[in-house]
Amino acid sequence: MSGNDFTADEMMTIAAARALSNDDVVFVGIGAPSAACNVARLTHAPDITLIYESGTIGTKPDVLPLSIGDGELCETAVTTVAVPEMFRYWLQGGRITLGFLGAAQLDRFGNINTTVIGSYDDPKVRLPGGGGAPEIASSCGKIFITMKQSLRGMVEKIDFFTSFGHGEGGDHRKRLGITTEGPVLLITDLAIWEPDPETKEFTVVSLHPGVTRDQVQDTCAWPAKFADSVKETPLPTEEEIRTLRDLKARTDAAHKGKAA
């Protein structure tokens, strides 16, 4: 397989998958996070524990679920608990090491908006809302975020604080009495970002192969910061690409047809 035979989306999912390990207990958001978690499980992290908010713990789906509660999540899970138990014993109880979220709008400190575009009382666009995210963001040991870069998505100021990241930066989490780490990694279709240890502002630490600094800045509405030494994200391996594409093909087939 040639080194350039992959899409930016595939690179994003694979880079996110690589950040996961066998020891992680992950609260999985639907969409890009779910794809990354399952690629990790099917490649280097077969023992990773995936938890979906529908109550399924230790699930191993063969296709990516369309929703957080598809039947296969339950059938392949170690156990399935009621939703109040999920949020009380498992999430609030501090048993989940990593929350993996997507975002409609994100700011440089990892604060997420999935509630409204415009004002809350008279929104321009009413988005679905937070679901489990507000408490995932505060109760999981740490948070990974994955999203495609765009000027509409990576904004100077989010319209609504659905889920708290690092707030205004620095020790803002600590000042609110939040004891968990918050966002520690942002994986986009162009780059890998980590928060600055002091300011907590997301900083580019690795550019995906072929991506320029200008491309990153052109799709990010805040002035992007770059680490002193920016690495290049390793190319996807043949196994990673094959695993992801097979997973997507199985998923598409399952979601299109009835009883496929």
Binding site: R88, Q92, T115, P134, E135, S138, F160, F161, T162
Partner: peptide, 10 residues
């Protein structure tokens, strides 16, 4: 009663 809504605008 629960531990939640920390920093959340809702």
């Amino acid at each position: 009663i629960f531990r939640g809504y920390k920093g959340a605008e809702l």
